[in-house]
Design a protein around this nucleic acid. Sequence first.
DNA 1: TATTGTTATACTCTATAACTATA
DNA 2: TATAGTTATAGAGTATAACAATA
Lengths: 164, 164
Amino acid sequence: MSTEDTGATLEGELALTAVETVDTTFLETLIGYNARRTALVAIESFLRVLEPLRLKPVEFSVLSLIEHNPGITQRQLCAALNILPPNLVGLIQRQERRGFIEKRPHPRDGRASGLYTTDEGRSFVARAEELVAALEARLVARLSPSEQRTLLQLLQRVYRSPSV
Amino acid sequence: MSTEDTGATLEGELALTAVETVDTTFLETLIGYNARRTALVAIESFLRVLEPLRLKPVEFSVLSLIEHNPGITQRQLCAALNILPPNLVGLIQRQERRGFIEKRPHPRDGRASGLYTTDEGRSFVARAEELVAALEARLVARLSPSEQRTLLQLLQRVYRSPSV
DNA sequence: TATTGTTATACTCTATAACTATA
DNA sequence: TATAGTTATAGAGTATAACAATA
């Protein structure tokens, strides 16, 4: 992250410690810290790779979930993605305006509507998922296939464990 | 996340799929998604546990880094924590006002100042780090010690790999 | 000329209150 | 009475531009 290194540490001041190299060992023992940094790196790449499609991570998640769960409701999307209902409204409208999804009346609940991808939306999601899969491969390129599986499993066991 | 389950899936509608249970299998293959969810769970617990100390995750990181890197500059903190300089100013001022840190003139650079914890700050950080360590233990309670080490190592290999 | 710390400010993300229409 | 979706809005987090002091 730092681009310079002026060296010259021996100024003779006793109390002076590690002013050039930052010691982050304590923070690095915390999954919260490490998970956050990993997520930030992934999101950064994501933004770059999906920029040509004008698609942000949450928007991708929403489209992908609708594609694989035809008829899903906004309430279900909120629960699955940890989004608050008011903040989902705009996301849905945008994808609707782009012609990628459409609402149809819900068969059993007049308050809700089911969300579906359009033909155009389906091919768009397919393209996006390809780009994301390729990005994913680059992200974990340093890990062996078994290490990749292990990492996902361990993360899931942490965030799925109840009452943390 | 969902608390209800109305059942009654066999309505006879052909196109209706998985309206009650959401299929997230594609998203769950992505480290970005899994790392983010893990980070969110950790941050949630963090906010709850550190609330009595009126300390947020970033504030803890800042204090902890100053404690373990006496004389660190704001520029170094920014680089280490991925914070932009203007956004660090307020964080520093708040911890200064609480009497936990102090600025001293930098020995070699008149533009910068070195940051140090005060006596009060040191005992405060110690208390905070204890709480965080206990929280960490609960977060990874479902993993064996060797799995815990593996998880941290794999995460670090992902976010440290260059040019993702 | 470049960099540290700072102010002001804009933009995005997330959260809360309140409404409507259905259940 | 409670819930799905919506509007309006507040607040937190993150970003850029510009400046003074120092390198």
